[in-house]
Amino acid sequence: MVLRRHHDMGGLDAGPVDPSGPGAEHDYAPWEKKVDAILRLVSDQKRRIITVDELRRGIEELGPGVYDELSYYERWIASITNLLVEKGVIEIDELGRRMAEITADWPAGGVADAEPKA
């Protein structure tokens, strides 16, 4: 029996693929595209701050519970942010303060934690 990490799912049993199910034609939300854009910029030839392999390592390190609870781009931004903090590009305290400010300024307020999503 080979031990697998949580993301390593090739060849395992799983339910049917639903090509026309919800999200089949995913209309990416602006914040999701922003996550994608941030990754492209910090990993480009000019900056080379994060590699795609590091992004994946960061996602894998979220652990099975978080991996399944978060949506796709939530995993990405969680990993990107952890890597930027790890590399000393941003400070955890300034990040926390800025997130609190952004949430306080948001007209409809914020939710304490992300809702688990499909």
């Binding site: 781009y73 939530e74 952004i102 949430t103 307020g109 934690d113 992300a114």
Partner: peptide, 22 residues
């Protein structure tokens, strides 16, 4: 309402710009 990870995305984007990284 803004989710935790949406706020994180916005904050990371702002901080990277302010630090002159992007």
């Amino acid at each position: 309402p803004l989710t935790h990870y949406q706020a994180m995305t916005e904050a990371v984007g702002q901080l990277l710009i302010e630090k002159g990284i992007i």
